[in-house]
Amino acid sequence: MQYHTPASFEDASKIAAKATGITRFLAGGTDVLVQLRADIVTPDTLIDIKHIDGVHDITRNSDGGWTIGVAVTGAEMTEHADLGGDWPGLVEAMDLVGSTQIQGRATLTGNLCNGSPAADSVPAMIAAGATVTVSGPNGTREVAAEDIATGPGRTSLAQGEIVTAVNIPPRAAGGGDAYLRFIPRTEMDIAVVGCGINLAVDGDTITAARVVLGAVAPTALLDQACADAIIGSTLDDAALEKLAAAASAACNPITDKRGTIEFRTKVAGVLARRVAKIAYERAQAGGAS
């Protein structure tokens, strides 16, 4: 295994483009090192991107949106004074990933690029409408968060391409987001079902919503029927029931060591209801801090 510490994304991309065998980028390492240790994936080329300028920064842009560096840890997101005010759901979702120790290392970008359908931060990112900036041999492109993972452990990134930043849109007034997951313990488990919702209200009426389910399909599911179930409503019981039914209907889960098809399908609806209520309360409370 060759270990590299490039000083720029350009260099990182060049190393990756030229590499043969398996290449991995190393930020927090909380997936890469687990796979290495367990002999699941031993990269031939490991590119540590933490020496690149700006990767540790959380920046509020002039339009009110946010740029999150690819080596920013979950703990740094949680500790940030303002990010959680705008995007509490996203910050909480990232905070749910692993333990205190994992939070000291794990990153949004890593959580996204690991390609796990159960990644906690991914439904929240997609619900938020986040994009990532991708640089590679053919230039730079901006990709919606939902278009990165293509299946368990697989992404749409080409050889030599690297995510250089996560872009979170501005939080408009009257917006709110939330994320919950179901796990059997209180901590340390992988989501059996996850749900992230970002919505906007005008008065008491929901005007826009993005509902995303995790761990119930090969990738996180951005589901329009779930959104339609609550858009135009005041999140009354009927809307919540419709949302729950739509969420359960959207599921395409598997039975595995963490949960059954029946369980995931049922609980997806339960979580969607609970998450919508929190996001709605936050939106009504005003959205942007």
Partner: peptide, 13 residues
Amino acid sequence: GRVVCSCLVLGAE
């Protein structure tokens, strides 16, 4: 100063 699992950090890092 931040708590991490040393099993998930490379020596080289």
